[in-house]
């Protein structure tokens, strides 16, 4: 059975402010979805709400993976069910080596019932796999011994996210502007890295402003968010249209959503 991520009528508040106002979306294993929208449309909110950030409260609707409801699960439980978020701004954890962090992560994802202190994946196997993945992402092994994201450049941090994706092999990966703030070489590395990882086993949602990432990873579906909802869904050509023409036409077609988005932005300022 192919896996399904099902988002139904999702309403999310950030602190007290309603940001998502009824998002509906289904992603199946093997599919690539592009999620587009202007700043403030709710894309990143959707990403964080799916991953379970404590500041993002689901007030209505549901998220499910293969029928298991995520709403009341903590981020760790969601990850163990197969959800992965590649962060737009990866967090630095000083003193924690990349390899140690990943070994714990991999152990938990592959053995979802694992409790703290219980066995980790065997060191030899883990090392071998890590080395392979790092080589295929053209990363120096030295990174495994560095502290997680500490002193990493923007491109290195994003590549570290892709490495984690490669090691954790989630059912569903959300990439939150993984291409933002990168020079074109770095975008190429990230894009090619992602291409190597996608396949029939994984569903991918790419949140992006960038054409490059989608050129390498052609979406079957493009969704456009505005005012906390998905207002249009199309194929790859919709993403191309937005890249060349911007959001003006979409705003015109959805005046109510456009007005709501302006309101939310005004509230935020």
């Amino acid at each position: 059975m192919s896996s399904l991520l099902k988002i139904e009528n999702l309403h999310v508040n950030v602190e007290e402010t309603p940001i998502l106002k009824g998002v509906n979306l289904e992603v199946k294993a093997g599919e690539i979805h592009a999620l587009m929208g202007e700043n403030g449309s709710g894309k990143s909110t959707l990403a964080y709400a799916l991953a379970g950030h404590p500041k993002y409260t689901i007030t209505e609707g549901s998220v499910e993976i293969d029928g298991a409801k995520l709403n009341d699960l903590d981020p760790s439980e969601r990850a163990r069910l197969g959800l992965f978020l590649a962060f737009q701004y990866p967090v630095t954890i000083p003193g924690v080596k990349v390899a140690d962090f990943l070994r714990h992560a991999v152990s938990n994802i592959r053995n979802p019932d694992r409790k703290e202190g219980e066995g980790l994946v065997p060191m030899r196997e883990f090392r071998k796999e890590l080395k392979q993945q790092m080589e295929s992402l053209d990363m120096k092994m030295e990174f495994a011994r560095r502290y997680l994201n500490e002193g990493f450049s923007g491109g290195e941090k994003k590549r570290m996210e892709i490495l984690q994706l490669a090691m954790l092999k989630p059912k569903f990966a959300i990439l939150d502007e993984t291409d933002s703030g990168l020079d074109s070489d770095a975008v190429r590395f990230v894009s090619e890295g992602l291409t190597k990882l996608t396949g029939p086993e994984m569903g991918v949602m790419i949140i992006t402003h960038h054409e490059r990432l989608l050129q390498y990873n052609t979406p079957q579906y493009t969704h456009v968010m505005m005012g906390g909802r998905i207002v249009e869904t199309g194929d790859a050509s919709l993403a191309e249209e937005i890249h060349s023409e911007g959001y003006a036409a979409i705003r015109e077609r959805h005046p109510e959503a456009a007005a709501e988005q302006e309101q939310t932005e005004a509230l935020a300022q």
Partner: peptide, 14 residues
């Protein structure tokens, strides 16, 4: 930091 680590499958305590 806690959220980031949890999103990779680590429990809160871990």
């Amino acid at each position: 930091q806690v959220f980031y680590a949890m999103s990779r499958g680590l429990s809160r305590y871990e």
